[in-house]
Design a protein around this nucleic acid. Structure first.
Lengths: 197, 197
DNA sequence: ATAATGAATATTTTTTTGACTATTCACTGT
DNA sequence: ACAGTGAATAGTCAAAAAAATATTCATTAT
């Protein structure tokens, strides 16, 4: 019945493991198939091609990052300013961990992002909507005074690119602590700018 | 006497022309030498190697960009906020023009920047000092209220990376107008945050 | 009809090889 | 000593060949 869904998932799991350990390029369809006890040809009944497998894993990665941010939206006892700070802290942490520890996955994401611009765009769209939520909350509580929430959310996203865009996060061997300090400083300045005066 | 300085300059001029037209990789030392009416071997009496020539041209490029920013520092009749805006506008304009029109030079800068991190760092250091000057002016005139000028200048630099870092400037085919609009929005938000309340 | 396969074909990657270019050096002219 | 050179060397790049891999397809199994 939903057999095919389970098999798809198995393929993703197996591929994910191999991609992380050996990289996308060094993993063959034959190897993935073997791990699933099937022939390489049969993989094509579940995925159009190898790249599609990569894209799916990439999407999962971005989705997980989004979850990290989303969790912050629901946290109790935070004002809008503190929430914004926590939001970028989580995003930065996730991005940093990915890049620093899963080098191969980082490369996969970078490669896929180059081709499938739409993926990245959708991801940014999601982050933007999260930020917009925080801005709206700030307006509600009187902490912020934002006229155009959507366009301001976009502006905030532009100013914080250092903390979610992997190539920038990894540029020069900044320690995680340095990055967090920079993140705090940028967000603090932005919060000042957003605040009701 | 200062013969060698003039010859060095000639080599740079000739190389610059060729690099812009054909790219760094497609320009040979023999060609540069021919343009200077000398043998390839003789170039090595003036430059350690080909890469050093590229680095020098790259430096000139960055220096020119810095000049664009510096000019804004001296403009009369601008408040600190307007000056900051004008500053990033000029930087963005120069960066955009370089990337959009001098594709080969853009690649050279990108390539050299990867190796010679110190060049880029020094460049950022310069931009930072310019921003610091503007912040200090703002403090003086009462427009801004910045406690730690140096660290704040750095924060501003981080938040505006979209407008001076070539790869980001060129990411997706944003029109120049879109970029300028984004630049205005980001700087406006930062200025709000810097303002005396 | 659906799942799966081995063998055939198409693509991509790797290796090899030859040509090309950067760099060095021993030497020439001043 | 200094500016310069041609020829020798070393290293890099690019085209071609070989090998590996992705993808398709005709066929089998259930």
């Amino acid at each position: 019945m939903h057999e095919s869904v389970a098999i798809k998932q198995q393929i993703i799991d197996v591929a994910d493991t191999r991609f992380r350990r050996y990289g996308f390029g060094k993993t063959t369809m034959a190897e993935i198939a073997k791990d699933c006890n099937m022939s390489a040809a049969n993989l094509y009944r579940y995925f159009e091609n190898k790249e599609t497998i990569g894209v799916t894993i990439c999407q999962n990665c971005l989705k997980e990052k989004e979850m990290m941010g989303k969790e912050v939206l629901k946290r109790e006892g935070l004002g809008a300013a503190a929430r914004l700070e926590a939001f970028f802290f989580e995003i930065l942490k996730y991005t940093y961990d990915l890049c620093a520890n899963d080098h191969h996955l980082f490369e996969l994401v970078a490669y896929i992002s180059k081709e499938h611009l739409d993926l990245v765009q959708r991801h940014q769209e999601t982050l933007r909507s999260f930020i917009a939520e925080i801005l709206a909350e700030g307006n509600r509580t009187g902490e912020f005074e934002v006229a155009d929430i959507v366009s301001t959310a976009n502006t905030v996203l532009l100013a914080t690119v250092h903390f979610y865009y992997p190539p920038l996060v990894m540029m020069r061997n900044h320690s995680f602590e340095d990055l967090v300090q920079a993140e705090k400083a940028v967000v603090a300045l932005l919060v000042q700018g957003l605040a009701k005066h």
